[in-house]
Design a protein around this nucleic acid. Structure first.
Lengths: 177, 177
DNA sequence: TATTGTTATACTCTATAACTATA
DNA sequence: TATAGTTATAGAGTATAACAATA
């Protein structure tokens, strides 16, 4: 057995692996975002849909799901939830009587605005320990990794691949470690 | 509504937010690790326990769970799984007839070795797009973030906080976006 | 015949609280 | 009375495959 320097067996020691740190920090950052958005009564994936709706008014439920990589059956519950909160509306599609057009309500737009604010707050908290120059440097490196990851996995650029996988209701999931 | 520059509404555009990128990259990195370990017949959280066992031989199931922040009832299934694969063994605890001592088998040690190798492979793949100097720079920044996050959340240093939350069987979970 | 939104079913994972046998 | 390991139950979330209405 060769306890690797990048993955020491001792859990009391922070593993200096990029993969481990990304997974761990990504989990924590996502958790903090979830808590912040929870204060507004929405979940991270709901934030994702609201965000998308700001630029895709008039699209059908299915088209929106395709962009977020959310399957049709799960879109139902997602749209139901936001509609019951009065943040979005289903309207008859002008060209297709089978489909709905999903749009932001005024309340939804206001909530999206608050969510952007909350997201900024989390961003600031997460980056608080870094100098501004370090933060930009980090951003540059992460973007480089993201571009490479998109190419490697074929994911849509800018879409969180976890969107297609599962919930987000509870602070969940490890995946690594 | 003010579509923030850090969180543009257009999903076809990579959001330059540190929080978003960490969540997204952490998810992808964890997924790749899961696939790599899956080739060895183990899951990420099983890797975590094997790794811990390399340095904590003789500890009870409950003590191990406390270190990984896994509740006793979930430790049962985790230990059962690894035991059924022949990678670990439950032995009677010398001082307490209620407890078991969990230890690596020879096969388990060999698998752990292979897992370290696989982890290195993923690490190399993830970092392949970065120059060696960039990789070290990234590592430095991530460690700094991790230290700050530990302080903010009170988590045990070096322990993936997702370990205590949920599965890892399927590539799951979004949390953000 | 294909597609939109929806539902029904079965399945996985989890948390909570019990239980047993020891201490 | 408390603790180690285990199990039982109920709940949330999911994927798969169906379904009715429309194209």
């Amino acid at each position: 057995m060769t306890p690797s320097p990048a993955y020491p067996a001792d859990p009391g020691q922070t593993p200096p692996s990029v993969v481990f740190l990304l997974s761990r920090l990504g989990y924590q950052a996502g958790s903090e975002m979830g808590r912040a958005l929870g204060g507004l009564g929405i979940e991270p994936r709901e934030f994702g849909l609201l965000r998308l709706l700001a630029s895709c008014r008039g699209d059908s439920q299915r088209a929106l799901g395709a962009m977020l990589r959310i399957t049709p059956n799960r879109m139902v519950a997602l749209v139901d939830g936001l509609e019951s909160k009065g943040l979005i509306e289903r309207r008859p599609h002008p060209d297709d009587r089978r489909a709905y057009t999903v749009t932001l309500t005024e309340k939804g737009a206001a909530t999206l605005d608050q969510a952007f604010h909350a997201a900024f707050g989390v961003e600031a908290a997460v980056c608080a320990s870094l100098e501004p120059a370090e933060c930009e440097q980090l951003l540059r490196l992460l973007r480089k990794l993201a571009a490479a990851a998109d190419e490697r996995t074929g994911d849509l650029p800018g879409v969180h691949p976890g969107m297609l996988e599962t919930s987000g209701k509870r602070p969940q999931y490890s995946h690594f470690r």
